[in-house]
Amino acid sequence: LRLEVKLGQGCFGEVWMGTWNGTTRVAIKTLKPGTMSPEAFLQEAQVMKKLRHEKLVQLYAVVSEEPIYIVTEYMSKGSLLDFLKGETGKYLRLPQLVDMAAQIASGMAYVERMNYVHRDLRAANILVGENLVCKVADFGLARLIEDNEYTARQGAKFPIKWTAPEAALYGRFTIKSDVWSFGILLTELTTKGRVPYPGMVNREVLDQVERGYRMPCPPECPESLHDLMCQCWRKEPEERPTFEYLQAFL
Rank of each mutant, 00 (worst) to 15 (best):
residue 51 L to N: 07
residue 156 A to K: 04
residue 187 T to P: 03
residue 52 R to S: 15
residue 240 R to D: 03
residue 98 V to L: 08
residue 35 T to P: 11
residue 100 M to F: 10
residue 95 P to L: 07
residue 243 F to Q: 05
residue 87 E to R: 14
residue 171 G to F: 12
residue 113 R to T: 13
residue 86 G to H: 13
residue 194 R to C: 07
residue 185 L to A: 07
residue 151 T to A: 06
residue 86 G to C: 12
residue 92 L to M: 14
residue 47 V to S: 05
residue 240 R to S: 01
residue 238 E to P: 13
residue 122 R to K: 04
residue 38 P to A: 13
residue 30 T to E: 06
residue 47 V to A: 06
residue 169 L to V: 08
residue 95 P to V: 07
residue 182 F to G: 01
residue 180 W to R: 03
residue 88 T to F: 12
residue 101 A to V: 12
residue 188 E to Q: 00
residue 59 L to N: 02
residue 66 E to G: 10
residue 142 A to Q: 00
residue 32 K to F: 01
residue 54 E to V: 11
residue 185 L to S: 04
residue 208 Q to N: 12
residue 108 M to K: 03
residue 245 Y to T: 12
residue 141 L to G: 00
residue 126 I to W: 03
residue 166 E to T: 04
residue 23 T to H: 13
residue 99 D to F: 15
residue 144 L to P: 14
residue 78 G to V: 02
residue 66 E to N: 15
residue 46 Q to P: 02
residue 235 K to D: 10
residue 133 V to S: 12
residue 7 L to F: 15
residue 32 K to G: 03
residue 247 Q to G: 12
residue 154 Q to G: 07
residue 70 I to S: 01
residue 51 L to H: 00
residue 118 H to C: 02
residue 137 A to Y: 01
residue 84 L to D: 01
residue 54 E to P: 13
residue 200 M to P: 02
residue 37 S to G: 10
residue 221 C to V: 08
residue 44 E to T: 01
residue 2 R to G: 09
residue 49 K to A: 05
residue 171 G to T: 04
residue 127 L to Q: 00
residue 20 W to G: 13
residue 151 T to G: 03
residue 61 A to P: 02
residue 225 L to H: 02
residue 47 V to L: 06
residue 39 E to R: 13
residue 202 N to W: 01
residue 158 F to W: 04
residue 101 A to E: 04
residue 153 R to H: 11
residue 111 V to S: 04
residue 146 E to Y: 05
residue 198 P to E: 07
residue 140 G to S: 01
residue 83 F to P: 05
residue 152 A to H: 01
residue 48 M to W: 00
residue 216 P to D: 09
residue 156 A to L: 05
residue 230 C to Q: 11
residue 34 G to L: 10
residue 23 T to V: 14
residue 66 E to C: 15
residue 103 Q to P: 03
residue 22 G to F: 14
residue 166 E to F: 00
residue 153 R to W: 06
residue 10 G to S: 00
residue 33 P to V: 09
residue 105 A to M: 07
residue 186 L to C: 08
residue 13 G to I: 00
residue 82 D to A: 08
residue 47 V to M: 06
residue 61 A to Y: 14
residue 185 L to I: 05
residue 182 F to C: 07
residue 203 R to G: 10
residue 80 L to P: 03
residue 141 L to V: 00
residue 191 T to S: 09
residue 121 L to S: 04
residue 219 P to G: 05
residue 32 K to C: 04
residue 181 S to H: 01
residue 8 G to N: 04
residue 39 E to L: 11
residue 158 F to K: 01
residue 124 A to Q: 06
residue 43 Q to I: 06
residue 166 E to V: 00
residue 140 G to F: 01
residue 154 Q to E: 12
residue 93 R to V: 06
residue 236 E to A: 12
residue 184 I to T: 07
residue 95 P to D: 05
residue 211 R to N: 04
residue 191 T to N: 10
residue 174 T to C: 13
residue 21 N to I: 14
residue 147 D to V: 06
residue 60 Y to G: 11
residue 5 V to E: 13
residue 160 I to T: 04
residue 62 V to C: 14
residue 113 R to L: 11
residue 79 S to T: 05
residue 243 F to L: 13
residue 120 D to G: 02
residue 129 G to T: 11
residue 167 A to V: 04
residue 110 Y to R: 05
residue 35 T to V: 04
residue 102 A to T: 13
residue 225 L to Y: 08
residue 114 M to K: 11
residue 115 N to Q: 11
residue 201 V to S: 15
residue 171 G to C: 07
residue 142 A to D: 01
residue 69 Y to F: 13
residue 194 R to F: 08
